[in-house]
């Protein structure tokens, strides 16, 4: 087994690294897009009480639909390749980010906001200096959940022509090659765990006060 693995890397290092890069890029870009969409929309939802119910309801349902279904459903509409893949990934990632943004913002205690107003902050200052910072831990959790979802679905997206490490796994399945399965599986796992670790470190840096609470 070890020999097979080493042989693989010796012969296919380039295509392997390409797959890693594709996987990382498609994941990162989708995550950023999902944040850019999800966080502002989440904020907007908290401002319009009636809209909020509809929006959270809609995204709650979107969250339940199996990711594979979302991914493959886009093919009759958008064809194969990176575009439908990224669209699917963003669709799958927005719900946790948006919903956590809504909950995070709503959970900031009223007396905290009143104090901020009471000592003389404008509404804008209250939002940016107090409300959002205090909602950040919750939003971050949503981003983390989204990221896990994205990396997993990006793995599947190899099947619809988006490239990435999933290709190794599918090829391994098709050709019955254990070495490819293991290399693919471990690479994806490592990628996923590394990303989770990075986000944890990032959250520790941004939200130092949370550490102090422990």
């Amino acid at each position: 087994m070890l020999q097979l693995t080493m042989a693989y890397f010796q012969n296919n290092m380039e295509s392997f690294l390409l797959a890693v890069r594709q996987h990382m890029w498609i994941s990162l870009l989708s995550l950023l897009a999902a944040c850019v969409i999800g966080i502002p929309c989440g904020y907007a939802a908290t401002r319009y009480a009636r809209g909020e119910k509809w929006i959270t309801g809609f995204f709650q349902i979107l969250r339940i639909i199996p990711s594979l279904a979302v991914l493959i459903l886009l093919i009759p509409i958008m064809g194969t390749g990176i575009k439908p893949a990224m669209t699917a990934l963003v669709l799958l990632a927005v719900p946790p980010i948006l919903m956590n943004t809504v909950v995070g913002l709503k959970e900031v205690p009223d007396f905290m906001l009143e104090t901020a107003r009471g000592i003389g902050m404008t509404e804008r200052q209250v939002l940016w200096k107090v409300k959002f910072p205090l909602a950040l831990p919750m939003i971050f959790t949503g981003v983390k959940t989204a990221m896990v979802e994205i990396i997993a679905s990006a793995t599947l997206a190899a099947k619809i022509g988006a490239g990435g490490l999933g290709g190794l796994i599918f090829t391994g399945l098709g050709l019955n090659r254990t070495d490819l399965l293991l290399i693919g599986g471990i690479s994806v796992a490592v990628l996923s765990l590394t990303a989770a670790l990075l986000l944890d470190v990032l959250s520790g840096l941004i939200m130092r006060y949370k550490k102090a609470e422990k």
Binding site: T115, K129, P133, L136
Partner: peptide, 29 residues
């Protein structure tokens, strides 16, 4: 807002901003 910035306001729940240090809290206004 101008009125509030001229008046000191203290409440029962204290309302210190948990994400700021003590120094930053005092320095807010």
């Amino acid at each position: 807002v101008k009125v509030r910035r001229r008046i000191g306001y203290v409440i029962q729940q204290v309302g210190l901003f948990p994400h700021m240090t003590i120094g930053e809290n005092v320095a807010v206004v």
